[in-house]
Write a protein that binds this DNA or RNA. Structure first.
Lengths: 308, 308
DNA sequence: TTGAAAGCGCTAACAG
DNA sequence: CTGTTAGCGCTTTCAA
């Protein structure tokens, strides 16, 4: 039979449905021999509990949904790692994504919500705050990367400003005075505001046409980092002998390419978000929504050195 | 009320439960005025159908699960795009991942299966064929990137050999005779077998110590491509004036970095897999399991040219 | 068209 | 410890 039920297992094991139910949920008050008989019957039949029925009857599903803004952005893969790391064994972590588009994201959230998850983590949501609020009416919600001022939504954000400050401080301590902040890309990075005034440059090739070229570069974002490194090498610059490079971000290739980075580790965001969500699920809504900030980390690798 | 039910909506609209059910599923045989009244009541209450109850009662869930081998690999983001593109509006695409580890992947698959999805796509699965077979006993299954010889599992694979052949042919047609195939990385790429005998090199820096250095390089894989390009530039080579570069893979940065690539587009794999799965869900099991192969694509960009 | 009735597979009291 | 009894919210016949 394609999908044996609790009843089938009970019949085969010669016990009642309730007993099988207890065994399936790992209740301690079942005699070992009985338990074993039930487990054997279940295995022989290839039985697997029906989450639909279980969720309906129990009133909770044990499902936690993760709405990741964009699967193409490795940041969200790392966020997911953090979420999965922190999730206890009894949560079922399910992922959905809007592929970067608000309308699709909203649809994906609705699909997730239809499953009646115990909680939902929204990583970098692009949808309206009102929609998030609405979701929070039905289940526990934690948002990553956006600070809502809703009383029922917990928020976890990274301290990007501190990451930029840390990078600048690191370069300064090495002796760099002329530091350029590079931001290549269609839209200006919000990090620009965290950079020292007048240091932001948008074209890597324009760096060397200035009277006093910089001795160090801070690249805002993973993509900018890659572009910058390539441009530097193409221009015949040696890194870090001629110019030091720090990337704000955690590019997957950073470790391999030995690039110095300064950023909030996305996995930390995931871990803290999941911990916060589980706490809300377990203990109920706190008096005030939680606001947590994750500090950045500087990973000094091979692209920074004192100015030559 | 936190979760209004069908009955609540019916009471508010002054109709029966069955009518609300019909409206919710978009049945055409409801008088427009009634429909509108029901819809209004539902909106006012913030009603949303309970998938658990619906799935239980209907016997099918409209859920399609995607088990992606590794979220950190951009290939799977592209596969997901293909899956989502092809999925009709009435399927709910849910993602799970084993984060590269077989044991976790198996657990993730089980969680997915517990939801009683109508079908499941396994992208690059690391688990045993027997487990996949077992899953196929309960719902439609399509596997991407692995050819199983199971009679009930459809398989979609990319023609990687053709991708390598295409890259070599492209370089040959440009006039290159000394072509090196680079494979940097802990484990040897399976693509090596598709390369012409004696062309495989594992250290990018070793390229130039040979008596007759190559005029063109084929990098096997995204990571190798990035490493190779960096190594080339570091070594003072101009691309493509001194050496041409083709990468097998579709690195996200390829377009930006203007790298010529030859590979099976992962999104194509996703699209074909979803189409295959939906066909099986809709029409039932075919006489024989389907085996489909997706052809590669050559994207000529700025890193290939005739030898200088 | 609309309403009533019978479950889907499971959990959660409760009584033995 | 074990069996019985109600539903959970929805779809689906089947009558009206």
């Amino acid at each position: 039979m394609a999908h044996p039920t609790l009843e089938d297992v009970a019949a085969r094991a010669g016990v009642s449905r309730a007993l099988v139910s207890l065994v399936m949920r790992g209740s301690p008050k079942v005699r070992p021999e009985r338990r074993e008989a039930v487990l054997r019957a279940a295995a022989e039949l290839g039985y697997r509990p029906n989450m639909m029925a279980r969720g309906l009857a129990a009133g909770r599903t044990g499902i936690v949904g993760a709405l990741l803004a964009d699967l193409h952005d490795p940041v969200y893969a790392a966020v997911h790692d953090g979420l999965a790391d922190e999730a206890a064994g009894d949560v079922r972590l399910l992922v959905a994504t809007g592929r970067g588009r608000p309308a699709r994201e909203l649809a994906a959230l609705d699909h997730l919500l239809d499953l009646r998850p115990d909680g939902v983590v929204l990583a970098g949501p692009r949808i309206a705050a009102a929609e998030i609020e609405r979701a929070a009416a039905g289940c526990a919600v934690t948002v990553i990367g956006r600070a809502l001022r809703s009383p029922r939504v917990d928020c976890v954000t990274g301290d990007d400003r501190a990451a930029v400050d840390g990078a600048i401080a690191h370069l300064s301590s090495l002796g760099h005075h002329r530091i350029a902040c590079l931001d290549v890309g269609a839209r200006p990075s919000p990090l620009r505001r965290a950079c020292p005034p007048g240091t932001v440059v948008t074209d890597p090739d324009a760096l060397w046409s200035e009277p006093v070229p910089p001795t160090a570069v801070l690249a805002l974002g993973d993509a900018t980092g890659t572009t910058t490194l390539t441009a530097l090498l193409r221009a015949g610059k040696r890194v870090p002998e001629d110019v030091s490079l720090v990337v704000h971000g955690s590019p997957p290739t950073a470790r391999a390419a030995q690039v110095t980075t300064s950023a909030v580790p996305p996995a930390d965001l995931g871990r803290l978000a999941m911990a916060t969500l589980l706490a809300r699920i377990k203990d109920g809504a706190p008096a005030r929504a939680r606001r947590r900030t994750v500090p950045p980390r500087l990973d000094e690798r091979a692209t920074t050195a004192p100015p030559g």
